[in-house]
Amino acid sequence: MNGMQGATLLKYRGHRYLKVTSALVLLAVAAYLLPGRTGDEAYGGTVSGYLLGIAATLIVLILMLYGVARRRIGGTPVAQADTENKVGRGKRPFRMGRLEGATLQGWLSAHIYLGILLLVLATLHTGFHFGWNVHTLSYVLMLLVMVSGVYGLNAYLSYPTLITLNMGDDTLDDLFLKIAELDELAMACALELPDEVHALVQQACRETRVGGNLWQQLSGEQRDCPTRYAVQQLPALSATYGRNDQPKMIRELYAMLLRKEKLVQRARADVMLRARMTCWLFLHAPLGIALLAALTAHIVSIFFYW
């Protein structure tokens, strides 16, 4: 699945966009070197500088159109992986949608390769002049968008498989139901048990968290997880009790907690993988919009002070 997904994105229709990109990159490098032949110092204001700049701007606009196309076509290029997870939350119905003959995979393939082309064009457009100004700001924003995009491509190619491997046939809600059930049982069991044990179980039930803030979601951890703590403490604690303290119930309780800990780990892994798969978009898209703003300022400034 993973391999196929990657193959489709990067090798779409016999490397169509790879070929187009390679040709355009060669053209751009030629355009850059042409004035170099006569010793002209390169910068954005030469004829080839303007041409490279216009081309780069058009590519930025096309790249941003992908965001629109994504909404209009529907689904995601990795929606298939989503579907297999049967998660439900935030899932878009997968349609190998077509919008006037365009497929989302085709768009994404073009998006990736055009991004690479943009890197070349914009870098040549700068003529390797950088400074503390709006022009370099645009370039840096573009780089940040690209870095997040490269992360995103890697995430789209690797995380769906990991999510499927982790969750199997379960959804996150399934896991929560199972955990809740175990909690009920453990609490009922703990009612009859010594206070220390009871406190451990109660804490494990009440304070175990899946998800949480940004860091907790991305790390897939809970510091001092009470369930894990209970699992660690229970055997030692039970050893100190006598025959009257219902050792059988403690053993049952221990089994429940172990099962719960596994479920919690899987749930946290699911939240983590999804967070890591989607977090880049929270940078990629806003930075893209910021880039458009900086680009506007860049272009206006050039002609304002011509």
């Binding site: 929560f176 009920e184 039930c205 009440r206 899946v210 979601q217 939240v271 967070a275 929270f282």
Partner: peptide, 12 residues
Amino acid sequence: ETAVGLKQPVTL
């Protein structure tokens, strides 16, 4: 009743 996950955000 179980508190796990229910009151925690699990998506960004």
